[in-house]
């Protein structure tokens, strides 16, 4: 039995999102035919809320809600899955210059996994850092598809994945309710808990899936200047 999860989402707990978790789950129910995802992972910016409990919403909508974090490192933004008390004690998640290599190694040692996100994005993606600095060790997977990518960003991510042999994930990076589930990750295994997710992410046995609508391109118009 396979599982499709949106691995990168932001709720109103992130400062730049106004999306309530309940509204996300309602939208997933509404758009199930177009975006057939089984669950979401909340990856709030620079924080991890260990006390958040979404079980009543999971029961109400039949959609899995897991929690992780998006942190900022010396090699760009990264998703941390399997956050536990040891990691919270070891790292200041609010630090915007976390040492990427230490984070990757320490999180792995403590039972989690770090996945660099939107690696093709300028300034905050792995691709640009790899142009001028040595590659990181022990990276298992990176986010291949990001719902907020601009033209060329997913292509740069694909280039990086091909070159380094990373496993590939997908996530919407949604900050708006209606953008949830645009990109996701399909696992061949059944996933019900964060431990299941971390275990599967380490295997590389999954693929990114793209549910973004294909819109017709709007022709470029030409204006006459009257300055």
């Amino acid at each position: 039995m396979s599982t499709i999860l949106d691995l990168h989402t932001h709720s109103e707990a992130s400062e730049d999102s106004r999306a309530p978790v309940e509204a996300y789950l309602n939208w997933i129910k509404l758009r199930q035919a177009e975006r057939p995802i089984d669950g979401i992972v909340l990856t709030e910016h620079r924080q991890f809320n260990r006390d958040a409990d979404y079980r009543h919403l999971e029961d109400k909508f039949g959609t899995l809600v897991l929690r992780a974090s998006e942190v900022e490192t010396t090699y760009g933004h990264m998703l941390v899955f399997g956050v536990n008390d040891d990691m919270v004690a070891r790292f200041d998640f609010a630090d915007v210059r976390l040492d990427a290599q230490i984070l990757i190694d320490e999180v792995a040692r403590m039972g989690g996994i770090v996945v660099p996100c939107h690696p093709g994005r300028p300034n905050i993606g792995l691709y640009e850092h790899y142009q001028s600095r040595p590659p990181l060790q022990n990276v298992v997977a990176v986010e291949a598809l990001n719902g907020g990518s601009r033209k060329g960003e997913d292509e740069r991510s694909a280039e990086l994945i091909a070159k380094h042999g990373f496993a590939a994930t997908g996530g919407s990076d949604s900050h708006l309710v209606s953008l949830i589930g645009l990109c996701a990750t399909k696992f061949s295994a059944y996933i019900k808990t964060i431990d299941d997710l971390v275990r599967e992410l380490k295997t590389g046995n999954y693929e990114p899936v793209d549910f973004r609508p294909r819109r017709k391109t709007v022709p470029h118009a030409v204006a006459m200047e009257t300055r």
Binding site: A23, G148, S178, V218, P219, A221, V222, A223
Partner: peptide, 21 residues
């Protein structure tokens, strides 16, 4: 609003909206 990318004039922009709640 969140300004993600500078918007350039002399282009056609399309504005979308959805009722979410």
């Amino acid at each position: 609003t969140t300004y993600r990318v500078p918007v350039q004039p002399d282009h056609t922009v399309t504005i979308h909206g959805f009722i979410t709640n």
